[in-house]
Design a protein around this nucleic acid. Structure first.
Lengths: 360, 360
DNA sequence: CTGAAAGCGCTTACAG
DNA sequence: CTGAAAGCGCTTACAG
């Protein structure tokens, strides 16, 4: 992944030992010591081609030597744009947020950009105004939108209106390619279905997330679709709408497992709900995978900590974050971003110990 | 908690509808429309007392009306200091990081300050240099240090040297009160011991975190101490040094539970390790709390999702974050911060279903 | 209580 | 390829 950093100077090492004056040198100091105008130094900072190679080299090593790094605030003021990337999210799991941050920071490392976190409540009145103000006031360079806010077209429109770059992480294309990182939830849901079918399961059940989450619709839809393609029906009484929470997983499993005949496998649309299924099964005296096979989604730390370890769909969240941030930094947005958008980030099945063929 | 915001203007609402000119008004526009100099507007922005009340009021409502908010970059450039707070952490759990962020953001809301995240690797060579550069380059207003980096005196010294405000979250005082938010781990460890003793347990075991974590030493130490005070000995063979990870909890429990006689209770120094104890017990056919009582630490979401629900010490992480950020913003640092430092954030026992008196 | 001047550290036109 | 002037939107001395 090419690092389209705006400037090389940001990679400046610590002030060279012994350089003296408190490491607070400015562009003027560099210019004076190099015997050029500050405009020339500025050109070097901004990787302009309009500098003679030897001049550039001389200035570059001088900056290195002095431990000079341009002041982001001064640059921002002149550019009318900051070097901050906003991370906007509603209420995903802690693990999701943190992994996304790590990924985004991977891409921002040594670029001179920093990551500013901005949680919000998409159900509150005027939350879009809040984000707009955040973007405008800080003159954000760009914004990364995480589900569920990424799915809000009104938010995207607001951002576009004020001219703020953004990238939406979502399960289906709902914007220009340059503004999207896709998570392919439908395909992953199908993988879960195919896996269970291949083990021999015919009476399977589904615990979805809330309908207002596009991911939930895609995961559940892909699952149902793939099942149908293999000739397996999923009647409404074997589908439970959960809330992506542990408790809803418990409730869903309790509802589904009291049906007769009992399903032999459950696909929960996230790991938290799958953990809820474990609890319900344990309480009902059902063994996993003996009496019940379970598949989750996310591959959160939880998945490997459950016993038996949970078979689940791994969502490479850190990669999503890295990808989104890299697209935002792309030199010639949106052209370059679009090219990068081709790099796909897909979930895949991680087989552990929570599934086996159904008992005869 | 008083919000010592530097300025009122940050709370400016969205541009009043119909105000026209794209909401990009500057201090000059305000000054012109108010018929005063920009210096006077500046005084209002910065809550200077040197403005006639009616003048101030007039300017304030004008700003509100225009949807004016001062540009943080321009202010920062003039102030030689940004309005950014850095959150520096090594590798705590995702839940800890996120809760701390939420807490810090609670305190920063409507203050004009933003939160910049900065993970690091305290085991890597020159990591302190990296943080120093981050603080210096961004001219951070202040930094919040989370364990384990908060325990590194060299880091604190480096920050002090460059004149960067910081607050350390840690289990014991190791700096000026104005620089500390205490988590009182020792006292909480004692609470765990007293609780188990009161239930009648005499053969108890302990799974600590890594020795290099001060929290681990305090939690374990408080536990051991309180036990001793009540006449219960904790021999070395009933103490296992874990790594604050799930896997180490499994390993620890496996080691401790094969001793004869078997301990009737285990205190794990965090919930992840407690979850590991659950797994080991389940595999060994031991029931919780029938055969074994378990106490964790953190009250992470995990705690209530385990079955039976885990009795644990609740660490109010969000409060820690709020407290730390509020101290950083205190008007007259370090005096005011010190006053706030009095507000204590203490863990307390949350009793759920994982403990009972030992079987006869 | 109020203001005119100079400056924070950079960049954008505009010339050459 | 290089530079002198003006400006980004604020604040700090310094006067009054």
């Amino acid at each position: 992944m090419s690092n389209d950093a705006k400037t090389r100077a940001h990679e400046a090492a610590a002030p060279a030992t012994g350089s003296g004056t408190h490491g607070k040198s400015t562009i003027n100091d560099v210019a004076r010591l190099a015997g050029v105008s500050k405009k020339t130094v500025s050109r070097v900072i901004n990787d302009s081609p309009l500098v003679r190679p030897d001049t550039r080299q001389k200035i570059l090593s001088l900056m290195q030597e002095m431990g000079y790094a341009p002041d982001p605030q001064a640059r921002g003021l002149a550019f009318r744009r900051s070097f901050l990337i906003g991370l906007v999210f509603d209420n995903p799991t802690a693990q999701y947020i943190v992994n996304l941050q790590y990924g985004a920071l991977d891409a921002l490392r040594d670029s001179g950009f920093e990551l500013v976190v901005h949680p919000c409540d998409s159900k509150s009145e005027g939350y879009i105004e809040g984000i707009k103000r955040f973007a405008q006031q800080q003159k954000l360079y760009g914004v990364i939108l995480i589900p569920r806010v990424s799915e809000d077209q009104a938010l995207a429109d607001a951002l576009k209106e004020i001219g703020c770059r953004y990238v939406r992480i979502a399960s289906v294309p709902m914007d220009e390619p340059a503004n999207m990182v896709l998570t392919h939830d439908r395909q992953a849901g199908a993988e879960a279905a195919n896996y269970l079918e291949s083990l021999g399961h015919r009476r399977v059940a589904l615990i979805t997330g809330p309908k207002r989450y596009r991911s939930s619709i895609e995961r559940g839809g892909g699952f149902t679709e793939a099942l149908a393609k293999r000739g397996i029906e999923l009647p409404p009484e074997r589908v439970y709408e959960g809330g992506y929470t542990f408790e809803s997983g418990v409730a869903g499993a309790e509802a589904l497992l009291t049906r007769h005949p009992r399903p032999t496998a459950i696909f929960a649309c996230n790991d938290e709900m799958a953990a809820g299924v474990y609890k319900a099964a344990l309480r009902m005296g059902l063994s996993i995978p003996g009496d019940l096979s379970v598949v989750g989604y996310d591959d959160s730390p939880l998945a490997s900590q459950l016993w038996p370890a949970l078979t689940t769909l791994r969502l490479p969240v850190r990669d999503l974050g890295r990808q989104a941030a890299a697209m935002l930094l792309a030199e010639n947005w949106p052209r370059a971003a679009q090219a990068q958008a081709g790099i796909s980030v897909s979930p895949h099945l991680v087989v552990r110990d929570s599934c086996q063929p159904p008992q005869a």
